[in-house]
Simulated scan of single mutants.
Amino acid sequence: MVIVDSMAKQELSSSLIDLVTKMSFDDISVKLIVSKTSYNRQTFYYHFQDKFDCLQYALSGLANQLTLDMNYESWQECYLKIFRYIDVNREFMQHIVGSQAYSLFTDFVLQSIDLMLRGVLNLIQGDTSSRKAKEQPWKLFEYGLQGIIINWFMGGLRENPELLVNDLLDIDLQHLMMLLGIDSNNTVHNSKHIQNAL
C-alpha cells in the first residue's frame, strides 16, 4: 500500500511538472494532471489537497535532487548550480513565477539554499544536527542568497551568474561560518576540504 501511494504521488507530481514545462500553472486543472497518469481525481485528492500542494511536493523533490548532486567542497559552486538549474529550466520556472504559485518558486529557491548550506556545513562539521549555528544569522544569510537569485530571475536572467557570485560572494569558508553565526571553536574543520574550497 505504501509503495503504491508513493508511486501515485510521484506519477501525479511528474505529470504536473511536465504540464508546467509547457503551460502556465494557472491554466492547469486537476483533471488535466490526472489525465496524463494512470490515476483518477479521487487518488489525486487522497494524496494532495489541491494542485498547489502537488506543485509544492514536486518542487521539494526537485530541490532535494538538485542538492544531492552537489560537490560541497566549494559553496559558491553549489550556489551557482542553483542558478544554472533555474536557467536550464527557465520556461518551467517562468510558468510558476507568472502564476498564482509564485511563492512556491521562492520557497523552492530558499529550500535549495538551505539544503546547500547544510551540505556544506555537514562536510566541515560532520553531523549538522549538532551544529552551533544561531538561527537569526543563518536565516538572514539564506534570505540574502534567495534575494540575489530572485532578483536575477525577475531581471530576465541577463547577468552572468558566475560574475554575480564572484562580485558579491567572494567569501571563504571561515567567513561563511561567521556569517552563519557558527562558533568556529565548536567546529571540527576538515583542512583538506577547506583548502580546496578557498
Rank of each mutant, 00 (worst) to 15 (best):
S35M: 03
K192N: 09
M178S: 14
V4N: 07
F153T: 06
M154D: 05
F92L: 05
L104D: 04
M93L: 00
Q100K: 15
G147Y: 07
Q94D: 15
E11P: 00
N166T: 09
L169P: 04
D5P: 00
D27R: 08
N151F: 04
L12R: 09
S15C: 11
L176K: 08
Y143S: 13
V120Y: 01
F25D: 02
D107R: 15
F44Q: 05
M93Q: 05
F44N: 01
D127G: 05
L32V: 09
Q174F: 14
L115C: 00
V88P: 00
I82K: 04
Y85L: 12
L121T: 07
L115V: 05
E77W: 04
I86N: 07
L140Y: 01
S99M: 13
L179R: 13
L145H: 03
L104S: 10
F141H: 06
L168I: 08
T43E: 01
D127Q: 12
L173M: 14
I149L: 12
L169G: 11
I96L: 06
N166K: 14
D53I: 08
E159K: 11
D53C: 01
I82R: 02
M70R: 08
V188N: 10
G155F: 09
Q111R: 14
Y46W: 05
L169Q: 06
D5I: 10
S35D: 04
Y46A: 09
H95S: 07
V2H: 04
M23C: 07
I96H: 07
I113F: 05
N151L: 05
I149D: 06
R84K: 01
M177W: 01
L59Q: 11
F52E: 15
L62I: 15
L164Q: 03
I17P: 00
F105I: 12
P137K: 08
I148C: 01
D50G: 04
S129A: 12
I194E: 01
V120Q: 08
N160E: 10
F108R: 04
V30H: 09
L121K: 03
W152G: 10
G156Q: 03
I148Y: 03
F52M: 11
S14C: 05
G98K: 15
S74A: 04
G181C: 12
L12V: 10
